[in-house]
Design a protein around this nucleic acid. Structure first.
Length: 394
DNA sequence: TATCGACGCCAC
DNA sequence: AAACGTGGCGTCGATA
C-alpha cells in the first residue's frame, strides 16, 4: 500500500492506489448552518446546550464531564428524548446530519486530488499501540456504514469503469482469536461448526436466544475483549452494577478459559511490563503498576485487549504482504489492493475476474497465520463486490 | 493565524 | 473519579 509522505514520488513504480469519489453524485446530506432554537434559547455549542437544558429549562439528571460542563452526548440526549424532551431528538437528528456532511460529504470532496480525480489516504504504520494501521488525511477507516443515511457515503466510493470494488473481511476475528488464545473448547467448537456465536452466548447466559438476549450477549462478547468491568457493562446494558457483575460472573462460570486468560495476561504484563501477540510482537504498558487507580486500571484493560487486537493486526498484515504475489501467481495483475480497514481489505477488480480474485483473496486471508501458527479455529472470510463500496458488503 | 484541550462521534 | 479496547477528525472556546 503506497503511503503519501512515507514513499517519495521518485520511488513509486506504479500509480498510487486510490479510490474514486463519485463527484457527480448529489450530496447525500444537506443541512443549514448550525443554529438550533430550543424553546427561545439559541444553541451554538454543546456547553451552551447543556446549560440551557439543565439550568434554564430545569431538566433533571445531568451528568458532568471533566470540565464541569453538562454532557450532551447521545446517551444523555436519548434519555431526555425518552422522557419526552422533544428538542433532544431534534438535536440528535441535527448532529447526525451535520456530522455526515462536515466530516464526510464536504471533507472527502475537498480531499480529491486534482491530478488523479481520486481521494488518497495515508497509512501510519506505527500509530496504534496494538500494531493496527491508522489512516489519515483523510481517514478512510471510519467511513459510515451503520445507519441507512450514513451508508450512502459508502455508496459514493465507486470503481473505475470496467471494474468492481471487492471487499474481503474476517468474520468475528477477535472472538475467534480469543477462543484460540484462551483455549475455550465451547467457543472453538462453535466456530468450527459455523454456529452463531452470539446466540451461543445468549443460550449459555440467559437460556434463550431471542433478539433481546442475543443483543445483550453480543454486547457482553465485545466487552470481554475490551477488559470488562461491572460498571462499564452495566452502563452498556442499562442495568444496575450488581446485575452487570452477576452477568460477568455467569460468563466466567460458563467460559472459565476466558477468566484464566485474563488472569494470566495480567500477571505476565505486571511481571514484564508488556504483552505479546501470537506472533511475538510486544505492546508495552508503563502504567500497569501505577499507584493512580484510573491509570492502572486503564492499562489493565488495554493489556487484556492488546494480544487479541494485536494478533488480528499481525494476521491482516501478513495477508497484505503476501497478497500481490498471490494475485500475480494467479495471473491477476489487474487486481489492485486499495485499502485496509482493520479486518477488511478492499480491492479494485477487473470485470469478469471476480470469482477468480475472490478465491485467491479469501485463501490468502484465511491462511495468514500459517506456517508460523496453527490456529485451533478456522478464519472465515466474507467476500462481496459491486460497483460501489456499499454494495461490496453482503 | 496556528495550536491546544474538551467534547462528541464515525469506524473496527 | 471513572466507568469495556484501538484510532482520526470536526467544532468550540481559549490562548499564543
Amino acid at each position: 500500500m503506497w503511503a503519501r509522505g512515507t514513499v517519495s514520488p521518485q520511488t513509486r513504480q506504479t500509480a498510487p492506489r486510490r479510490f474514486t469519489l463519485a463527484l457527480g453524485a448529489p450530496a447525500p446530506v444537506r443541512t443549514s448552518k448550525l443554529t438550533v432554537l430550543v424553546a427561545r434559547f439559541t444553541i451554538g455549542s454543546t456547553q451552551q446546550l447543556g446549560h440551557v437544558l439543565y439550568e434554564r429549562l430545569g431538566l433533571k439528571g445531568g451528568r458532568k464531564g471533566k470540565s464541569g460542563a453538562y454532557s450532551t452526548d447521545v446517551t444523555e440526549l436519548e434519555r431526555l428524548a425518552g422522557e419526552g424532551v422533544e428538542c433532544a431528538k431534534l438535536v440528535l437528528d441535527w448532529r447526525q446530519l451535520t456530522k455526515l456532511k462536515n466530516t464526510y460529504t464536504d471533507a472527502l470532496q475537498a480531499q480529491i486530488n486534482p491530478e488523479t480525480g481520486r481521494v488518497h489516504t495515508s497509512f501510519s504504520l506505527a500509530a496504534a499501540q496494538t500494531g493496527r494501521l491508522a489512516s489519515t488525511d483523510p481517514n478512510l477507516q471510519n467511513i459510515p456504514i451503520r445507519t441507512e443515511i450514513g451508508r450512502k457515503i459508502r455508496d459514493a466510493f465507486v470503481a473505475e469503469p470496467g471494474h468492481v470494488l471487492m471487499s474481503a473481511d474476517y468474520s468475528q476475528i477477535e472472538l475467534r482469536l480469543a477462543a484460540h488464545m484462551a483455549d475455550v473448547p465451547a467457543l472453538k467448537d462453535a466456530f468450527r461448526a459455523k454456529a452463531d456465536i452470539h446466540n451461543l452466548t445468549a443460550i449459555e447466559l440467559f437460556g434463550s436466544e431471542d433478539r433481546e438476549n442475543r443483543n445483550k450477549a453480543k454486547t457482553i462478547n465485545f466487552a470481554i475483549l475490551y477488559g470488562i468491568s461491572s460498571w462499564g457493562l452495566a452502563g452498556r446494558l442499562g442495568v444496575s452494577r450488581e446485575e452487570g457483575q452477576a452477568i460477568i460472573d455467569r460468563y466466567f462460570e460458563r467460559f472459565p478459559g476466558i477468566r484464566n486468560y485474563i488472569a494470566q495476561t495480567l500477571t505476565f504484563a505486571r511481571e514484564n511490563g508488556f504483552t505479546r501477540t501470537l506472533f511475538g510482537r510486544k505492546t508495552h504498558f508503563p502504567n500497569i503498576d501505577s499507584r493512580q487507580q484510573n491509570l492502572r486500571q486503564g492499562a489493565e484493560r488495554a493489556a487484556i485487549n492488546a494480544p487479541i487486537q494485536g494478533t488480528s493486526a499481525d494476521l491482516i498484515k501478513r495477508a497484505m504482504a503476501r497478497m500481490d504475489g498471490a494475485l500475480e501467481s494467479a495471473g491477476l495483475e489487474g487486481v489492485r489492493m486499495l485499502l485496509q480497514v482493520h479486518d477488511e481489505l478492499v480491492f479494485e477488480v477487473p470485470d469478469g475476474r471476480e470469482e477468480q480474485a475472490a478465491d485467491v483473496i479469501r485463501k490468502v486471508l484465511a491462511d495468514a497465520a500459517e506456517p508460523a501458527i496453527k490456529l485451533d479455529v478456522p478464519l472465515d472470510v466474507e467476500v462481496g463486490w459491486g460497483s460501489h463500496w456499499g454494495a461490496a458488503h453482503r
